[in-house]
């Protein structure tokens, strides 16, 4: 186990396109870090630089107290779980798990012990002698995790490991990964573009946008105090309303800020409220209903309990502490 330190890490691909720039991050021993961001923002690139699969063009990566910029992936003491699992198709599950250990000359008895232990943890014991082809997607995913566990590495690196699973299994595996990491206390970096996964798994979230870090913080911090309009729009579902301040002149603070952010659930009906909303489309989600509409020309979505009649005009109010104020040009949070 080890801490990981990224110092001004950057990547310029041959050809000159910049994928990642100036990433500074201190990961404590045993911490679960989730990298989250939209497609193409450089999450995989960043992770692969830590793994050693991608060369580092700027800055440095430290694992433990060692700079590993030039160290081969196998010698970095990390284990990686790939999106498509990347199991060796011609080897049985047992051989898949044992292959890395065999290559580092682990004694046979020790290999057997670790494989059996991992199999027990992940409940893949019954499949140990099958080929990956004969497993379901979820079982393959477990094997891929098993391959990481048996290494007993200093850090786990996950690149969207659950994105090939169906929704239900994804939730179950999410909990299991969290559990597992708690139990093993292995430093982990987890890449996902699913913000729900990010919120539930992370000790700390790193929100990336176009190769730059937008915000680092615990999931609740990031949710409660998004550092920019980008984070505000990305974390939370349904997404936070970002309303031009001049559309809601009666809200406190709208004189200084350019953009006011309000989460849909924070906008509540109130006959005396200062905001008037013209109701448009309605989405019934069962537990709640999402009401889309316009406030002085700006698009707004609110989440209401799923009962009662709706008129086509609603008066709304929001508590002052539920308002987020952002600068116009930089999109940065103002307070």
């Amino acid at each position: 186990m080890a801490s990981i330190k990224l110092d001004n890490l950057g990547k310029i691909y041959p050809g000159g396109s910049r994928a990642v720039g100036g990433v500074k991050l201190d990961i404590a021993d045993g911490e679960f870090i989730v990298l989250v961001g939209p497609s193409g923002c450089g999450k995989s690139t960043l992770l692969r630089m830590v793994a050693g699969l991608e060369s580092i063009t700027e800055g440095e990566v430290r694992i433990g107290d060692r700079v590993v910029n030039k160290v081969e992936p196998a010698d970095r003491d990390i284990a990686m779980v790939f999106q498509n699992y990347a199991l060796y198709p011609h080897m049985s599950v047992r051989q898949n798990l044992a292959y890395g250990l065999k290559n580092r000359r682990t004694p046979k008895a020790e290999i057997t012990r670790r494989v059996d232990e991992a199999a027990a943890i992940l409940q893949i014991g019954p499949f140990l002698d099958r080929k990956p082809r004969a497993l379901s997607g979820g079982q393959r995913q477990r094997v891929a995790m098993g391959r990481a566990i048996v290494r007993e590495p200093a850090a786990f690196l996950f690149d969207e490991p659950l994105s090939n699973l169906d929704a239900k299994l994804r939730v179950a595996m999410r909990l299991e990964i969290k559990d597992l990491q708690k139990r093993l206390r292995t430093t982990s970096i987890y890449v996902t573009h699913d913000q729900l996964e990010a919120m539930t798994l992370a000790d700390r979230l790193v929100v990336l946008n176009a190769g730059q870090v937008e915000q680092i913080g615990t999931p609740l911090d990031v949710y409660r105090r998004p550092a920019s309009t980008f984070v505000a729009g990305f974390i939370g579902s349904p997404a936070m309303n970002l309303i031009p301040a001049r559309a809601v002149p009666h809200l406190p603070g709208s004189a200084h800020a350019a953009v006011i952010g309000i989460r849909p659930e924070d906008l509540v009906p109130d006959p005396d409220g200062p905001i008037e909303m013209q109701v448009g489309a309605i989405e019934e989600l069962g537990a709640q209903r999402l009401v889309h509409g316009k406030v002085n020309g700006a698009d707004v979505t609110i989440a209401l309990p799923s009962h009662g009649e709706l008129s086509d005009r609603l008066r709304l109010n929001a508590a002052p502490e539920a308002l987020h104020r952002f600068d116009d040009k930089s999109g940065k949070r103002l307070d």
Binding site: A51, G52, L53, E72, P73, A74, D75, I78, A79, M80, F82, Q83, N84, Y85, A86, L87, Y88, Y99, G100, N103, R104, R147
Partner: peptide, 11 residues
């Protein structure tokens, strides 16, 4: 990824 997995596995 197969190549990369093997690299990480020390092959």
């Amino acid at each position: 990824e197969l190549v990369e997995a093997a690299r990480i596995d020390g092959a």
